[in-house]
Simulated scan of single mutants.
Amino acid sequence: MSNIVTQPVTVGKAMPCGGHKRKRKRKSQLVGFLFVVPALLLVGLFFLTPVAMTAWMSLHRWPLLGQPRFIGLDNYWRMLSDTGFWDAMGFTVLYTVVVTIAIFAVAFPLAIFVEKPRPLQNVFRTIYFLPVVVGFAAASLLWVWLLNVDNGLFSPLMERLGLTNGRVNLLGSFDLAFASIITMVVWKVAGFTMIILMTGLQSIPEDITEAARIDGVSALKRFRFLTLPLMRRTVGLALILCISGSMLAFDQFYIMVSGGPQNQTLTAVYWIFNQSFVSFRLGYGSALSIVLLAILVAISVVQLWIIRDPKEDAR
């Protein structure tokens, strides 16, 4: 009969059970939440609270001086027949479309230019980005001087070059004022969009573009079928920032042309400003602000839906 050898059983540490795993997971989630709390407090204090107060004011006839009176949705019904607001919205959409196209038409070539290693690369980046640090109010005042008929730069220069017969008021007609403001905004904002697009270009692996170049793919086709698809998220971010900022345009139109000539350059925010602080209808101005916020949210949601990646969503 063979001997039965019994080996000693070593008792090790027990593996953590599911309860311990869940406990550690909840603890890590709690730590992450504590890091987010300061940001949530700031958002709640400086965004959600003002939005809630604005929504409450929009339900009242709220004069600048005097006692507010609750009127329900009357301000919103009144807005439907406010042709001035819808004209301002139409001009704002026109301005947004034109200035967005102009900004990308300038920013994309600049991003491609400064992304490639070349002499004085950092100098070029600094020069193109420098106008971004200037505030819109300061930039508008600067361009008011540059566009001045008598003491400015552009009008006398155009006369000396023979481009115009005498000096022209570049802010005197709608077409010239609109083109001048578009030029100022592109000069001011294109550098910021350039930086965003440049980061997207730098994130594209070099071996992919090099392989396409070796295969004989032209630069235009590489940009169309390789660069743009890989920069979907970056372009989407730049578009959202550009469109949102353009829909909220106010400073340049207020300072440079004061909504003129003949109130043809009144933007949506400018109209809200007039209703709130010129006509002293704070309740109606609040209702217009809530509607404009809803329009911006809808535009952003549509853009995010368009630039989504179905393959990533399916994972």
Rank of each mutant, 00 (worst) to 15 (best):
K23P: 06
P310V: 00
R232S: 06
D82E: 01
L228V: 12
A107K: 08
D251C: 04
Y284E: 06
T10Q: 09
A179Y: 13
G90W: 12
I295N: 01
A14R: 14
F174V: 13
T267S: 06
L48H: 12
M15G: 05
I307A: 04
V31Y: 12
I255Y: 03
D74P: 09
S258D: 05
V31E: 11
L201Y: 07
W305M: 07
A102T: 06
L41D: 10
V217H: 02
R213W: 11
L220S: 14
V106W: 07
Q264S: 12
D175H: 13
G72A: 13
L282C: 00
N148Y: 00
K221N: 09
P131Y: 05
V185Y: 05
L228D: 00
T164E: 07
V278T: 15
R61S: 10
L197H: 04
L304D: 01
V106M: 09
V93K: 05
R125P: 08
T126L: 10
V269G: 14
L34H: 07
A55T: 13
L42R: 03
T83N: 10
P50G: 02
E115R: 01
F277I: 03
F192Q: 15
L142T: 12
R315F: 14
Q252I: 03
I4A: 01
V106Y: 04
I243C: 10
V189L: 08
I112S: 05
L170Q: 02
V269I: 15
I182H: 03
H20A: 15
F85T: 11
C17Q: 09
P117M: 04
G191L: 04
K221C: 01
L163A: 10
G32C: 04
S300H: 05
T227S: 08
S155W: 03
T54Y: 02
F113N: 11
L94A: 04
N263T: 02
V134H: 11
A88N: 07
V5I: 15
W305E: 11
E210A: 13
G72V: 00
L146G: 03
N3K: 14
A179L: 13
A190Q: 08
A14V: 08
L42T: 03
G66M: 09
P50Y: 06
L161A: 14
Y76G: 06
S140E: 00
V99I: 14
M79R: 06
M15S: 12
L237K: 04
H20C: 13
V278S: 11
M57H: 04
A298L: 11
F129E: 00
A298I: 14
M15N: 10
R315T: 10
V132S: 03
S173C: 02
Y76D: 10
F104V: 06
P156H: 05
I290A: 04
V31A: 14
V9T: 14
S155T: 00
K21E: 02
T199Q: 10
P38D: 08
L176I: 09
G12Y: 03
W77E: 09
M79Y: 06
L226H: 12
K25A: 15
V257N: 02
W305F: 10
A298D: 02
R78A: 14
L201V: 05
F35Q: 09
L157A: 08
F280K: 00
S81Y: 05
V43L: 15
L48A: 14
A212P: 05
L110W: 11
L266V: 07
Q121R: 15
P68D: 12
G259Q: 00
F273P: 00
